[in-house]
Structure formats: C-alpha cells, structure tokens
Design a protein around this nucleic acid. Structure first.
Lengths: 212, 212
DNA sequence: ACCATCGTGGTACGTTCGTATCACAACGTT
DNA sequence: AACGTTGTGATACGAACGTACCACGATGGT
C-alpha cells in the first residue's frame, strides 16, 4: 500500500498550528479553517489527518502537555548542576509561571481546556489532569529530600507544601496571564514563601557554590 | 412616556438566566436563544434588553461578581462573631472555594471570563480584575491586624501571605472544579498553611471573646 | 504496465449563531 | 379619543462553522 507522507509528522505540524493560532486568538475563536491556514494546508487536509474537530483538540491538548513536560524536565536538568533541592523546587515552580510566550500560551490553553473539560466528558477523560499530580509528586519528593538533609525549618510537611505551592503557582500564573500581576512580583512571592520553608543559610560556606 | 415594565428587574432576570445556563453547560456553549429559553422569554426580548451578546456577557459578569461579593461579605459578617482574625481569614479563603453549586458556578464562569479577557479588550477593561485586589487588601488587613495582636509567628509578612493564600485559593479552586481534588483536602491544606502562619494557641482559653 | 489506494483540492450542504426586520398589542399622554 | 411610544412576537437574513462529497494526480505493489 502506497504511503508517501509521514502521517505523524503532519499531525504534529497541524497540532502545532492549532496551538499557535489558539494562543494568538484564544481557543474559543479557533476553527478548522484557521488551523488549516496557520499550517499552510487546505481545510481538507486537516479533515484528512484529524477526522473531526474534537480529535484535533484532543491531539492539541496532548501535544501541548507533552511539550510543556519536556520544557519543565529540561529546566530541571539545567538546575541539576546547582547544589541542593531548593534550586530544583525553584526551577519547577518558575517553569510553570507564564513568563515568556511559550509558557503564556501553555497556561492560557491549559486553562481553556480545563474549563471545557468541566462539561466535556471526552476532555475530562483525558489524562491531562494527571500532569499536576506528577508535578506534585516530584515537588514533594524534592521537599522530602531537603527535609532529610535537614534543610527545612521544623514543622514543615512536604506533602502539604507541595500541594500549596503548586496551587499557588497556578493561581499566580493566572494573575500574570490577565495582567493583574507581573512575573517579577510572583517570583518575589515565591522567594518569600520558600524562605519560610527552607532553613536560612547559616554560613556562606566556602565548600560549595550556592548560587551562581 | 409610557413605561410599564421594570427594565432593571428584567435585565437582572435575564442575567441570572445567563449565569444559570452558563454554569450548567459552560459559557462557551451558551447562546442568546439558550438564555431566552432559560429565562422563559422570547429571543427578541433578550435582544431588546441587551442589544448585543457582548453587552449581555458584560452584564452577566458584573452581576456574577456582585453576587459573589455579597456572598463573601455575608460569610465574613457571619464569622464576625468568632474571636480573632483567623476566623476571618478562614472565612474569606473558604468562601472562594467551589464547595457548593453557587461557588462552583462562580469559579467556573469567572475563569471562563478571565480566559476570554486575555484576548478581548472589552472584557479586560471590565473592573472584574479589581475584585481580587480588594480581597487581597482585606486579607492582608486581617493578617496585619493579627500580627499587631501578636497572633502570628515571627517573620510572617502579611502582604506576601495574602497574595500567596489568595493565589493558592484560586489554584485549589480550579483543582476542585476539574475533580482533581476534593473540597475537604483543600480545606486541610489551608488549615496546615494557616497553622504555619498563626502562632499556636498556648492556652485553650475560657469563653472570653477578645474582639467583636 | 496497470490499478487500487493514498493524498489532496475544491466545493457544497445543513446547522447554528447573532442580528435585523416587520408587525402589532398595550398603555400613558395630550 | 387619538396618537405615539414601548414592549413583545415571529421570522428572516447573512455569515461562519463542522462535516460530507466528488474528483483527480501520484505512487507503489504485482
């Protein structure tokens, strides 16, 4: 059977077009014709690779979360050079804030999908709700690790802190998105809260570099 | 000039119908015909009292925030009998969580409007972004008041805590909305975080109320 | 070399949406 | 009592949307 084009690649292209145009004009305003135009293909092609709009949206959501997961993972790897779990925690929390265009788009579309999922069983069944759970587990892990290293103030519960910090990150992200708060102020709030979780550095130690 | 019906009351009725049907099926899925049917009037009437759909949405948003503001105020008044500012803080934070149907609808629609506002200047110009600022100021006030009464742990900054708690409330609210978290678990997280802000009660004092 | 299948374009169809138009009943003012 | 304004119904219109249909070039298996 003759197959000349890479279906997966095409679907990826079109999915990225969906994310781009949805980030630019809002998910509610995007139609199949807009996606086709953005991808530089005909409407028929979008129909061909995604039979229905619902499937296109589902694929777009999946691609969005995948790409963002990779982004967060890359940030965590980049923070891996620094000593201590606090850098990890900071990297994780900062990566979720809508600071640049990509994270802004992610935050906006993720929220849009979440709103739709409230009344759309097909979207609600999608495992994109599971992503926050993974982030929460990772964050709790870092905090627990810090606690075992004696880096945390007494009385801190890693699990509750992870939930709270992640929810705070989501809330602050939305505030930034609508222009109520600046990324800098959100960062400052995070620094304050992390200072109330992590024990203060007693000695500007010579042994290891703490921050670059 | 003959005027036989109360325009304001009619607009309120239709606006409430909008909020109801939008809460039931999602804001993206509501059309003028749906609002008309929900309000039990003809499509023409909705057109008559709100010339355009945009104005209807704007009015619905305004009404939504007003009603919710009153709800929060009522909760705060109800908590006024309790001693100490912590009850106030708890009342404020809990009121924002989507626990019952009304607060669920509010949370869902507010988020929907916020998403739309990102690309709709008319919505963004609406002062509904100001409401969180008011809540933040009130919350910071309660915390500052508690601090002056010596009820807070050392090193707590009322302003940063207010921002963080409110963002946390928004984030937890969304989690509850999409079914990721239960209201009870969100409440528990709040209790934990408030325990890390407020000084523990040394003496389970007798029934002496300190503030009215 | 043929042909079934894949990939692609163009376009039409049915629906739904927001809005506009026409008609008319009801009441207050003069 | 007549009239003009107001409130209301029914319906029409144009646009946009998702989807379906039809046609055809290209290509690989046999």
């Amino acid at each position: 059977m003759p197959k000349r084009v890479d279906h997966a690649a095409r679907r990826t292209e079109i999915g990225e077009a969906l994310v781009r145009v949805a980030g630019r004009r809002g998910l509610h305003a995007v139609g199949m014709r807009d996606v086709a135009a953005e991808a530089g293909v005909s409407l028929r092609l979008v129909q061909y690779y995604f039979e229905t709009k619902e499937k296109l949206l589902l694929y777009g959501l999946q691609q969005l979360t995948e790409r963002f997961g990779e982004r967060v993972a890359a940030r965590l790897r980049a923070a891996g050079d620094h000593p201590g779990p606090r850098a990890m925690v900071e990297a994780l929390l900062m990566a979720a804030l809508p600071t640049d265009e990509e994270s802004r788009t992610f935050h906006l579309l993720y929220t849009s999908y979440a709103v739709l999922a409230v009344h759309d069983p097909a979207l609600a069944a999608q495992p994109f709700i599971k992503d926050p759970d993974a982030a929460e587990a990772a964050l709790a892990g870092f905090l627990r690790q810090a606690q075992e290293a004696g880096l945390l103030r007494p009385g801190v519960d890693p699990g509750s802190e992870a939930i709270g910090l992640l929810a705070m990150s989501a809330g602050l992200g939305t505030s930034i998105l609508v222009g109520q708060r600046t990324p800098d102020s959100a960062t400052a709030v995070f620094e304050y809260h992390l200072d109330r979780i992590f024990r203060p550095d007693q000695h500007p130690a010579p042994t290891r570099q703490r921050r670059k």
